[in-house]
Amino acid sequence: MNALIIEPSDFSPKVVLDPTKNVFELSGESRPENTSKFYVPILQWLEQYQSVLYWEKDKFGQGAQRTFEFKFDYFNSTSAKFIMDVLMQLDKMAQEGYNINAKWHYDKRDEDMKESGEEFSKLLKKLPIEFVEI
C-alpha cells in the first residue's frame, strides 16, 4: 500500500502514513481552510489500510506493532472533530484485534494539549494511548 505523505504548512499538519517504514505520524498545527477536505483522505487511507491489515493477518498472521504518533502544537475545534474520527478509526482497528496503539505527545508546559488527549481517550474503547511528555 502506498504511503500518504502531506507536507506541513502554516495551518496544516505534517502527515506521514508509511506502512513500509512503519511510521505513522501527524504533527504540527491544524486549522486547515477546509478541514474536511484535509482529513477525509486521511480517514479513507486508514480504511484502506485496515483492509490491508486484514489481508496480511489472514495470510501471515498478526503483524508487527503499529504505533500512530500524534504530535500537535495546536489544533482548532473543527480539527478536533476530525482528529477524533482518526482516533475512532484506529480504535475500530484495535477492537478488531490488530496490534495498534497511539502515542499522544505534548509539550510539558502545555497542560491543555495533554488534557485534550485525555478527553479523546475517554471516548475510545480499546486503543491504548500512551502520553509522552516532551
Binding site: 478541514t35 474536511s36 482548532n76 475545534s77 473543527t78 478536533a80 472533530k81 477524533m84 478527553e119 479523546f120 475517554k122 471516548l123
Partner: peptide, 23 residues
C-alpha cells in the same frame, strides 16, 4: 460538555460552531 459535543456531533454539523465557543 466539550467531550459530549465531540462524541455527538454528526458529520453534517461539522462546519457549525459547536465546539468553538466551549473551547
Amino acid at each position: 460538555f466539550y467531550r459530549q459535543t465531540l462524541a455527538q456531533e454528526s458529520p453534517l454539523d461539522r462546519d457549525n460552531a459547536g465546539l468553538g465557543i466551549i473551547d
